[in-house]
Design a protein around this nucleic acid. Structure first.
Lengths: 177, 177
DNA sequence: ATGATCAATGCAATTTATTGCATAACAAAA
DNA sequence: TTTTGTTATGCAATAAATTGCATTGATCAT
């Protein structure tokens, strides 16, 4: 279970609310972590009980109150010790591939439509990731050096999406012919 | 939940035991589905209760009995109707990227060691997938046509792994310099 | 005005997945 | 010869993730 550590990693960079974390996962960080809001809020509660994060309620004008969480020393300790152990390789469960594998039971039109739908999502993601990369590349060498590791993860998103698109285009061709 | 459908898809190709399915997922099909043995056995039981698959016990010499499951007409129906709906995009939760993102809290040696470990696993997988591809490419055009859709999923594995390796090599360089 | 979306959080129930433990017989390697 | 690995399955408990439902006040478009 590393939702816990995914959250700690983000809070170590910057104190955030559950909603902030959710947005990060849904937007820019979706290529490496995904979670529903309920999962995040529950986990934040547990992390607070365990003393790994602290919670402050911030009032806002015109908007609901915000609970801002901040990592504690003990949280940093937990994170550091987690980092010292090796992580499991990423589990893959891809329903699209299941569908294609059994695709002879449905029509090519159905398969193509499905692929096209996924394709447009992946294209959007790639554009977004490349925009973030462009911003990074405009930083000074010192700032680039500072954000090198997050940038490396961004590169994973970009290379992964590019490969996905290559595959999808090749597959669409193959199904059509 | 599409473990159910992943299993049905495989059983639609060929009757198998839970152990057979497990091996398929762990070996060749790991790039598109993963499950623990307990999950598979439980799911098979449920599918049998729902009448989507049938079970026959086969005795073997020198080996434990085998429960061979076969998809039923009703199972094919369920699968077909599942195929007619669109599937959700693949959820990604990659602990390795979490670790890299927060990598400033640990040593570069640790990060490099971790990357190298994952690298060797991915290399192995890629070699294995390419071997399967070679076999496919030696088939006659008719047989190739017949297995076109599974081949497309195999290509996803190959392109995905290649991109993963490219990324890892680039990342290792970046961390080292 | 009326419905949609965003901001922000939460409970409760259910479904899925993981972990730990257990069995049993054969084969191959150390 | 002892241990490790393969074949083959399972229960029970726990942990993690999803789904459904619910609130509130703002703003934005039709």
């Amino acid at each position: 279970m590393s939702l816990k550590h995914a959250i700690l990693v983000l809070l170590e960079t910057e104190p955030s609310s559950g909603y902030d974390l959710l947005k990060q996962f849904n937007n820019s960080l979706g290529y490496f972590w995904n979670a529903k809001h309920q999962q995040i809020y529950q986990q934040l509660k547990l992390l607070a009980i365990d003393g790994l994060i602290d919670c402050t309620t911030e009032e806002q004008q015109g908007k609901p109150d915000k609970k801002v969480y901040k990592i504690t020393t003990s949280g940093v300790g937990e994170l550091t010790s987690w980092l010292s152990n090796s992580v499991k390789p990423n589990k893959i469960n891809d329903a699209l591939l299941v569908k294609l594998y059994g695709g002879h039971l449905t029509s090519n039109e159905n398969l193509l439509k499905e692929l096209e739908n996924h394709l447009s999502l992946h294209k959007k993601t790639l554009i977004q990731l490349r925009q973030i990369e462009q911003k990074y590349l405009k930083f000074s060498p010192e700032v680039q050096e500072k954000y090198k590791l997050p940038y490396i993860t961004l590169r994973r998103g970009i290379l992964g999406e590019e490969a996905w698109l290559d595959w999808a285009l090749e597959s669409i061709k193959m199904i059509k012919k």
